[in-house]
Write a protein that binds this DNA or RNA. Structure first.
Length: 482
RNA sequence: GGUCCCAUCGACUAGGGGUUAGGUCGUCACUCUUUCACAGUGAAAACACGGGUUCGAAUCCCGUUGGGACCGCCA
């Protein structure tokens, strides 16, 4: 186990406006690994695509991650001596190293237009070959290149990939991976707008920021050889690689918007507790192993137990049912005061008087067992706010019009009118009293009362419901049927 | 199509030469609760297939099949 203090990992998202669940897990694993090893967790913003900039995305990203308990030691908003941490502010650096690659003949200029390239790919596809740049610009003489440059012809800079060579690397999660250099594309390193592509920028930054371990999604695996070529050309050491498997849709394809929510913000907004979300995401692809059967882990537990060796090598389906179960467990066991604070926004349009904290708390505690997520609060508060109990099913009326019901209700009302305040305890006493006096019991006694009070034949514990409703309302609801 | 990755119940996974293949979600049944839910108990449910290696393979090797990712002047 690697416990040395020099570990430096990075989370390097592009600021597209929201955090994908898959990104969250990558960020989480980086954070856990950094904390577990006593290393540093770095945030770097990969904003080299000028066409995809989103206003305020970085703030949102940092806020959301910190809210979830994922902290950074270096990054755009907290500095560090390896900055700047925005790639868009590092253009000079990329240019410098790209020149070095050019000088070393490890990269070359190319002048094709996007249209030309598209045509080239179309032909390749027609012939059933793999689409990749055919290296035509390599045929340009130095003079031609120079002339093109002087004439201001738009150009890119490409990586010159050697032929007939096997590139291999060792991945901490996947093991040894070998790729034939003949299938590696002459990747564009600098785009015609002067910005670097991911491939160039990430190699340079990882080196300069002294990143020791690259932990990222599996979708990057096929571009690793390009990166290795870059490291090699620049004479740099390649960081340790750890490619974590993808998070999948139920149909096993890469988790996508099409099949449900993918943004962390969506889950938070729906009222998944951050502890549950983190716990669940961590267990997707990682587990402590060694026969450990615990499923609930705090962030602290996770940082103590996490290791890259225990990360699964196959993809994991994102199972909302299990997330719901886990979130419900957290809700049931959460500190009531904190849970109430978090729940308040979800009470907003329910008609519950949230200024009465004690009252709101009673409702929350009565219904929390039903909640998979906080945004389900409104559908469970109706019974406490309605002015008359609306029947969920017309058939329930049978109970209310039953002969015995009138007797029960009249007696219960009489009993209740003699009480000061109605508590759950008192309700229990009174209903027992009614049973004794009327001789009516069982279903005939309890069901009509529940239905008259809530409109439904099931729901939270009736004495609690009665207490929350209060004496006036209970009597009023019962009176309707006498 | 090419390259790469992956393969234990429906899902998440433990186990990594000898196990009645264990746990969790979900499903079903029962118990509890005069309701539903919760809780508890129990059940059904998996080593993709074929070859090796071995006394012995879910476990190691090879192949097949299946699934996925990537093949952009996106990251």
């Amino acid at each position: 186990m690697d416990k040395n203090k020099n570990v430096r990992v990075r989370f390097a998202p592009s600021p597209t406006g929201y955090i994908h669940i898959g990104s969250l897990r990558t960020a989480l694993f980086n954070y856990l690994y950094a904390r577990n090893t006593g290393g540093k967790n770095i945030l770097r913003i990969e904003d080299t695509d000028q066409t995809r900039l989103v206003e305020g995305a970085v703030d949102n990203l940092v806020n959301s991650l910190e809210l979830l308990g994922i902290e950074f030691d270096e990054g755009p908003d907290r500095g560090g001596d390896k900055g700047p941490y925005y790639q868009s502010q590092r253009l000079e650096i990329y240019r410098k190293y790209c020149q070095e690659l050019l000088d070393k003949k490890a990269a070359y200029y190319a002048f094709e237009t996007p249209e030309e390239l598209e045509e080239m790919r179309r032909m390749q596809q027609l012939e059933g070959r793999q689409t990749m740049y055919d290296g035509r610009a390599l045929n340009l003489t130095d003079e031609e290149v120079k002339a093109n440059l002087e004439n201001g012809i738009p150009h890119v800079i490409r990586l010159k990939v050697p032929r007939d060579e096997e590139i291999r690397f060792n991945d901490l999660i996947k093991g040894t991976i070998k790729i034939d250099s003949n299938v590696i594309d002459d990747q564009i390193l600098i785009k015609s707008d002067g910005f670097p592509t991911y491939h160039l920028a990430n190699v340079i930054d990882d080196h300069l920021m002294e990143v020791t371990h690259i932990i990222r999604g599996e979708e990057w695996i096929t571009s690793v050889p390009k990166h290795i070529l870059l490291y090699r050309a620049l004479g740099w050491e390649v960081p340790v690689m750890a490619h974590v498997p993808l998070i999948l849709n139920p149909d096993k394809t890469k988790l996508s918007k099409r099949q449900g929510d993918v943004a962390v913000e969506d889950y938070l907004r729906k009222g998944y507790l951050k502890e549950a979300l983190v716990n669940f995401i961590a267990m997707l692809g990682w587990n402590p192993g060694e026969g450990e059967e615990q499923e609930f882990f705090s962030m602290k537990d996770l940082t103590e137990k996490f290791s890259l060796e225990k990360v699964q090598s196959s993809g994991a389906v994102f199972n909302v049912d299990k997330l719901n179960w886990m979130n419900n467990s957290y809700i049931k066991n959460y500190d009531p005061e904190r849970l109430l604070d978090l729940s308040l926004p979800y009470f907003r349009d329910t008609g519950v008087d949230v200024s009465d904290r004690e009252h709101t708390m009673k409702i929350l505690l009565a219904i929390r067992v039903y909640l998979n997520k906080l945004n389900e609060i409104p559908e469970h508060t109706k019974i406490f706010t309605q002015d008359k109990a609306e029947l969920t099913d017309e058939k329930l009326k049978e109970y209310l019009t039953a002969e015995t019901t009138k007797t029960v209700f009249s007696e219960l009302i009489r009993q209740l009118e003699n009480t000061e305040v109605l508590t759950a305890e008192i309700y229990k006493e009174k209903i027992n009293e009614v049973q004794k006096l009327t001789g009516i019991k069982g279903k005939l006694l309890f069901k009509p009362v529940r239905i008259a009070l809530t409109g439904s034949e099931n729901g939270p514990d009736l004495p609690s419901v009665a207490e929350i409703l209060g004496k006036e309302k209970v009597i009023k609801f019962l009176s309707v049927w006498t």
